[in-house]
Simulated assay, not measured.
Amino acid sequence: MPDAPVILADEPGSFAHGVLAARHPALIRAVRDAFPYDPGQRRALDALLTSATEGVIEPLGTDADEHWAAWGARRYLGRSWFEVPFLWSESYFYRHLLQAVGYFGPGPWQGIDPFRPFKLAELDAPETDEELAALDRLTGQSEQEQARALLHGSLWGNRADLGFRLSVPGATTAVSQLVADDSEALWTLLPVDTVCLVADNAGRELIPDLLFLDHLLCHGRARRALLQVKPYPYYISDATTADVVDAVRRLTAAKGAAADAGERLWAALADGRIDVRAHPFSCAPLPYADMPEDLRAQFAAADLTVFKGDLNYRRLVGDRLYPPTTSFAETTAYFPGPVAALRTLKSDVIVGLDAATEAALVAAEGQRWRTNGTHALVQVRP
C-alpha cells in the first residue's frame, strides 16, 4: 500500500525511537558483559554504541557479505540511524554488532553466537520446565483440543522474546487478548502435504513451534515440514539451526510427553520430514514482497506457510503505518500461496482489524496495545 508511510525512528517517544535509543545500547552492554572479549572487540562494541546513538551509519568492514550492497547500504551511509527506515536500521545494527565481535572472522571468534548465553538461559529457565510439564496434561485430550492448545502455545510463546524484554520488562505477565482470530480458517487449510514454518525466536518460543510441527506431522495434518531459520544470529533471539538442535535436545532431556516429542522431532529432522533451511534473505532489512526468486519458489512449493512472530509479520505485510483496518489479504496478495501469521504485537505495524476492535483498543489503551506484547493475532489468507 504505497500511501502508508514507512516507519522511521526519528520521533522521540515513539516505539521505534525507543528501540534505537534504549534497547540497542542495552543490548550492546549485555553482549559486552557476556563474553571475555579482547580489547579490540570491546573497542568495536563501544564504537558501535557511540555510532548507534550519536553518530551516523557507517560502512561494514572487509568481512561484509555481498548482499548488503543490494539491500541498500550505500543509499543510507552517512545518515542518522534514526532517519532511515526502522526495519533497515534495526537489521543493519545487528549486522554491525556481529562484525564488532568477530562473528564473520577470520579469527578465533568466528561463528561464536554473541546471544547464545541468553538463549541457553531461556531454555534452562524454570518457566520452560513448567511449560514442558504441561504437555502431560494434554495427552488425555482430543486431537482437536491438543491442536488448538499447541497453536496457542506457539502464538503466545513469542512473549518470551529476549529483545522485547529489554525494553518492556514485565510485559509477559499482563492481561492478554486476541485482536484477530482466523484460527478456524487455518484449520480448514489442513491437512496438507507440505507446511512451511518461518521461525522467529529461539529458546522458549522455538520449543512450542517445534511441538506444533510435531503435532501436525503425528496426526496427519502435514506429511512434511520446512522450517525456515536465520543463517546467522539476528535480533538477539532469532532462531538459527544451532538453536533448533538445542531446543530438540532440551525436549529429549525432559520427561514424559516432552521427551517423546523430542525423540519424534529428532527422528523427523534425521529422516527429512522436517527440512531446516536458512536463506540469506531471512536476515534482509526488506519486506518479503522483495524476496528473490529462489526463495519465492521455496514458498510456492509449500501448501501453507506460517509466519511466526513480530519481525516476520513486519516483513510479511511491510513495515508501514497502515490504517489498522487495511486488508491482510491485500497486503499479502504478492505471496505465492496460502499464508498465515501467528504474532504477538510488539511494534507499530498492524493490518486486518475490524473497525470496532480498533476503536475499543484505542479507547482502552491509546496506542500502547500495538507494542506492549499483551495482544496477539492469528491471520490467514487462503
Rank of each mutant, 00 (worst) to 15 (best):
A202Q: 05
E145I: 11
A364N: 06
R277W: 03
L304K: 06
L138C: 02
R223K: 13
L269S: 05
P36I: 09
G153N: 12
W71M: 07
L216R: 06
D161Q: 01
I207Y: 04
A278N: 09
R296W: 03
D348A: 12
L186D: 08
T252K: 09
A360S: 13
N372C: 08
A340L: 04
A199I: 12
R42Y: 00
A202G: 03
V6N: 01
G170V: 11
N201A: 01
L210N: 02
L150R: 13
P338H: 08
Y94C: 04
G352V: 08
R29L: 11
E127Q: 15
E83Q: 14
G105T: 08
R320E: 02
D113W: 00
G203K: 06
D271W: 01
L210A: 02
V175Q: 14
A4I: 12
A70P: 00
L49M: 11
A180F: 01
P324N: 04
Y313M: 11
D214A: 12
E66G: 13
Y232Q: 11
A253L: 10
D303T: 11
L342N: 01
L286A: 14
A47S: 12
V245E: 12
Q177E: 15
A355W: 00
D310E: 14
L206Q: 05
F35W: 15
V248E: 05
A134H: 10
V351N: 04
E330V: 09
V195Q: 00
V179N: 01
P126Q: 05
A300Q: 11
L304M: 04
W68P: 00
D129K: 14
P108C: 03
W109L: 09
A376V: 12
D348F: 04
F35H: 15
W266C: 09
R264F: 06
L197H: 06
H375C: 10
A333F: 00
P126F: 06
V56I: 14
L206G: 01
A284H: 05
C283E: 07
G55F: 09
A52Y: 03
A300I: 12
D260L: 13
D271E: 13
G102K: 06
D193N: 10
A258I: 09
V179W: 08
D63F: 05
L97F: 04
H219P: 00
L377S: 14
V19F: 05
V168Q: 15
P114L: 07
D63E: 13
L210H: 03
L213K: 07
Q367T: 15
D303I: 08
S14Y: 03
A4F: 06
N372Q: 13
Y92L: 13
D310K: 11
S91N: 01
D303C: 06
D46G: 15
L45M: 07
S80M: 12
T173P: 00
R165M: 11
D294V: 10
T128K: 03
I7A: 01
H375S: 03
A160E: 14
D260R: 13
L361P: 00
A268V: 07
D214L: 04
A254E: 02
L190Y: 08
L123Q: 08
F281K: 07
L138R: 10
A300M: 07
Q177L: 15
A261M: 02
A225Q: 08
Q141Y: 14
E263Q: 14
T331I: 13
K119M: 04
T139I: 09
R314Y: 01
S327D: 12
S237K: 05
T173C: 10
L151C: 06
H96W: 09
G102Q: 02
F335K: 08
